[in-house]
Design a protein around this nucleic acid. Sequence first.
DNA 1: TCTGGGGTCCTAGGACCC
DNA 2: TCTGGGGTCCTAGGACCC
Length: 419
Amino acid sequence: MIALVDCNNFYASCQRVFDPGLEGKPIVVLSNNDGCIVARSREAKRLGVPMGAPYFKQRDFLDKNGVRVFSSNYALYGDMSRRVMSVLEQFSPGIEIYSIDEAFLDVSGIETGDLEDYCERIRDIVKQWTGIPVSVGAAATKTLAKAANEYAKNAVDKNGVMVVRGEEDVNALLAKLPVDDVWGIGRRYAVMLKSHGIANALQLKRADLEWIHRKMTVMGERLVRELRGEPCFAIEETPASRKSIVSSRSFGMPVTSIDDLREALAMYATTAAAKLRVLKSLVSRVSIFITTNRFGSAPRYAECAGLELTEPTADTRVLVKVTGNLLNRIYREGFKYVKAGVCFTDITAANARQLSLFTCSNGRSRSDSLMYALDELNEKFGRNTIKTAAEGVNHCWHMRQSKRSNRFTTRWDELPRVC
DNA sequence: TCTGGGGTCCTAGGACCC
DNA sequence: TCTGGGGTCCTAGGACCC
């Protein structure tokens, strides 16, 4: 059996932990740059606040209804996530951290009769130790556990826990689940399935496998098999190695000069390079993109450029230089740019480095040592203690975050006050 | 004025190899 | 009428996830 533990309205719940006055009040959390609504508390959902809507279009409505609005605060959410996951690790040795607010647990060792109790314990302990409310769904496959969780979260009679086993229980659950809400069915597939008379998960479960394969490739077939109780997606305890790393941001205000773009790209390359080193990896292909606003009537321009490196690297200096050179290739004057980004692909493990014919290297290079020192200093004294001059200072394009709460758990000067 | 960011997998088709 | 057979690698595009 597999249990899916999912935090309820995770970002909103994180805000509440350190501001209990928000309990029972409608809350929304905005995306980077205060652009869109990306999380809503139960109360906000009930008011009909749409997911993903641009904030500026909802602002009046939110004000009128007394909805509290927060800029995203990933320092806080990331740290709260680590706390929740470390609690969950105590409940099963087989755990897959699936996203910032979800984890699959292998609970096949738990006696059948005890599984409900066990899941309730998970829910209670996580809440008690971290302050975050979670829902737990357990079933024979990941897809069914997802469905059970979905139901547990919304059904009043379930109180956040649902265990489904046996054909009849499963069918009863799936009959109530709209096909749009099945894990792996997005907008396109939902439309296609409904046009063929498949509106709920039970109908999907009973669909013809060959037909599903034709329409939805092998992923669709696996999904249907999972609904039938046949595990096709295993719990991945060790995360697969990364295939790409992207760092990009919309700007707080439009940018026109190549110098500003260069600084922004240098900053994104620095972020991505640091992530690369945490993963003990090297990159061989770097690409960048710049783009103007895709809304409105202003002239548009969007371009990307990439480069294959002669030798894989994780050296910030090299990568910053490369992004600068790529920018020279695609920058065009006279446009208002609103977003840029850096993308690393062709990522390999650092210990499997293929040297180029012309390198002479024995053990740790000067570059490795420098990057190590840089990472240590930034870790100990805070991000940006040491950075390349290319990143510049006084970024006028820095993203908007006007409603960010304190980073209660990761900054000494932002700890919550209790009196 | 204001519209997020970061990932995965699969398939088809073209280029190329022997 | 009929023009081999069997592969690999790469990329772009489409679908999905949180």
